[in-house]
Design a protein around this nucleic acid. Structure first.
Lengths: 113, 113
DNA sequence: TGATTATATTTCGATATTGGAATCCAGCAA
DNA sequence: TTGCTGGATTCCAATATCGAAATATAATCA
């Protein structure tokens, strides 16, 4: 039981992944790709309720994945950690590989129509 | 509400992140860095119960993150998707940046001891 | 001050996920 | 066949998380 990483380290890494393990949060992050947006803009763009968007943003903020700027009544959020998109791209390419593998597995004994 | 990605696509990506959002699974994956290992070796190395290790391995297998090979009574698992480690490294460096940011924030008004 | 608007927070029910315990199954050996 | 060992599976209790609804806060305006 030799351990390369401490429990705490693994919890931290897992915690980061957990933040990204939610479709709605990914949608919000993607909406922020083009630059900062206010909460109501994000509500309109994602189709989620205001309370929900706010909660997700708060979580992303606590993990320093987004930062925010208050201007009058509005709060503008923006991506603070650009590695997020690298992560997503890696996952996407890995998913494509997986789908390709499934496709090949199905095609191994092709149905001759 | 213009959407760049479909719900299904986001679910897939989030699903992948969710698999990695578990400290014990990260520990198992890390234990497999050095090469394939049997379930009992992984049980010994991680300190988790056999049932638990087995369940986690099953999930990893369904997501094609590991593959397996049966030999007699033993089943040997190995990493099938090397992008996993790239993901973890990205997260680690991002975490370091986060910690560094916290440190700086705390040090901004340093206590003169 | 009071009203209004944008955002945040709390509470709650439903659902999912974890680990532990017990059990089941498959393959080898006697 | 019986027995044993390595793994897989099932069931369960505890915990966490999501979204909806209601409510609270904060900044601006009349």
């Amino acid at each position: 039981m030799r351990r390369r990483f401490s429990d705490e380290a693994l919890e931290l890494v897992a915690g980061r992944f957990k933040v990204l393990a939610e479709p709605m949060r990914l949608r919000i992050l993607d909406a922020l790709r083009g630059g900062e947006k206010s909460v109501s803009e994000l509500v309109a763009e994602t189709g989620a309720s205001q309370a929900n968007v706010s909660k997700h943003l708060n979580l992303l903020f606590r993990h320093r994945m987004v930062s925010r700027r208050k201007e009058g009544l509005n709060v503008y959020y923006r991506i603070a950690d650009p590695t997020i998109f690298e992560l997503c791209e890696l996952v996407c390419s890995s998913l494509e590989a997986e789908l390709e593998a499934s496709r090949k597995a199905l095609a191994r004994r092709p149905a001759r129509t």
